[in-house]
C-alpha cells in the first residue's frame, strides 16, 4: 500500500525553533470567517473585505477616510481634545494607564476621529470611531468630538455622518460616559433644527450606549453587512433568557428585517450610495433660493 518514495525517513518536525523561517508579519491576512488567506495588499485593495466570503474586516477611521474621501485628502478636526482620568478610576489597572497604553499602541488620542473632506467633490464631515482604542468605548472625548462636529456642520452647513464601532459606554468614566448619550442626542436636535442631514453608519460591532443614542438617531440608519448591532450583547441576553439565540440574531440583516435600518451597504458601494443619498438632501430645489 505505501510506496517508499514518499515515506518520511524521520518522524516528526525536525526543524529546530532557531532554524524556523519566520513569515514576515503583516504580509498575509487570514479571513476570520472563512480562513481564506490574502496578501495585505490584496486586502487593502479590496477595501478590507474578504474576496471569498465578503467578510467585512474591522477597520478604523484612517481606513474609512481613505475609502470615502477623494484622493485620501481630508482635514482632521478637534485633534486637540484628549482624554483624562478625572475620576481616578482604578480597576485591575488605573484608567490613566489604560489611556496611555491605548494611545501608544494605536497612535490615536481617543476612540473618535473626525475628518472633513470631499466625497465625490462634495464637502462631508465624517466622525468615525476606532475600535482599537479601548474597544471603541464612548467616553467624554467621543461625546465632545461629536458635539463639536455638529457645531462645525451647523456653522459650515455641512452634512454629518457618524461611523459607529463600539463596545458601548466607557465604564471608567462612569456616569460621565452615560451622559454622553444624552449630550449627543441633545446636539443632534440642533443639527435637525438646522435641517442638515445626519447619517448613521453602524459597523461591527455597534453596541450598548452608542446604539441607544447617536447610532440609532440617523435621518437614515445604515449598516455594513453582518455587523453586530445591539443594545444588550448576545452573551448577556443568553444568560438572561437561558436559551440559545437564533442564527443571525442582532446582525445587520436581522435589524433590517425588523425595521431599524434603512439599508445595508456593502463597503464597496458605500461611497457611491452615500453620494446619491447626500445629493437628495443637499440639492437645492429648482426655482427656490
Amino acid at each position: 500500500m505505501s510506496s517508499t518514495w514518499f515515506r518520511r525517513s524521520k518522524k516528526g518536525i525536525l526543524t529546530t525553533t532557531e532554524e524556523k523561517k519566520e513569515t514576515p508579519d503583516g504580509l498575509w491576512h487570514k479571513c476570520p470567517q472563512c480562513k481564506t488567506t490574502a496578501t495585505v495588499k490584496e486586502l487593502h485593495d479590496n477595501l478590507y473585505i474578504c474576496h471569498k466570503c465578503n467578510y467585512h474586516n474591522r477597520i478604523n477611521a484612517k481606513e474609512y477616510f481613505e475609502i470615502l474621501f477623494d484622493n485620501n485628502e481630508y482635514k482632521l478636526l478637534f485633534e486637540n481634545i484628549v482624554p483624562k482620568d478625572f475620576l481616578g478610576f482604578v480597576d485591575m489597572k488605573p484608567y490613566g494607564a489604560r489611556i496611555e497604553e491605548a494611545q501608544k499602541s494605536t497612535g490615536l488620542k481617543d476612540a473618535m476621529t473626525v475628518g472633513h473632506g470631499k466625497m465625490n467633490e462634495k464637502d462631508f464631515v465624517v466622525a468615525c470611531m476606532n475600535f482599537n482604542f479601548i474597544g471603541g468605548s464612548m467616553g467624554s472625548v467621543v461625546g465632545e468630538k461629536i458635539s463639536r462636529a455638529i457645531d462645525y456642520c451647523i456653522k459650515n452647513k455641512l452634512p454629518l455622518m457618524v461611523i459607529s464601532k463600539s463596545g458601548g459606554a466607557r465604564m471608567m468614566e462612569s456616569a460621565f460616559s452615560l451622559m454622553q448619550m444624552a449630550k449627543t442626542a441633545a446636539k443632534l436636535t440642533q443639527l435637525a433644527k438646522a435641517q442638515l442631514p445626519y447619517i448613521s453608519l453602524m459597523t461591527d460591532p455597534t453596541t450598548g450606549g452608542v446604539t441607544a443614542s447617536y447610532a440609532m438617531l440617523g435621518d437614515i440608519n445604515i449598516a455594513e453587512p453582518n455587523a453586530l448591532i445591539c443594545f444588550a450583547g448576545p452573551r448577556v441576553i443568553k444568560e438572561t433568557i437561558k436559551k440559545d439565540l437564533p442564527a443571525g440574531f442582532q446582525r445587520s440583516e436581522f435589524l433590517l428585517e425588523h425595521g431599524f435600518l434603512d439599508f445595508i451597504a456593502d463597503r464597496k458601494i458605500l461611497k457611491q450610495k452615500l453620494t446619491t443619498v447626500l445629493e437628495w438632501y443637499m440639492i437645492e430645489p429648482a426655482g427656490t433660493h
Binding site: A185, M216, C230, F231, A232, V236, I237, K243, F249, H258
Partner: peptide, 15 residues
C-alpha cells in the same frame, strides 16, 4: 436585556 426587547429595538426606543 431580552430577545424580544432587542427585536423590537430597545436601543432605538431609548435613543
Amino acid at each position: 436585556p431580552g430577545l424580544e426587547a432587542e427585536e423590537r429595538g430597545q436601543a432605538e426606543a431609548i435613543a
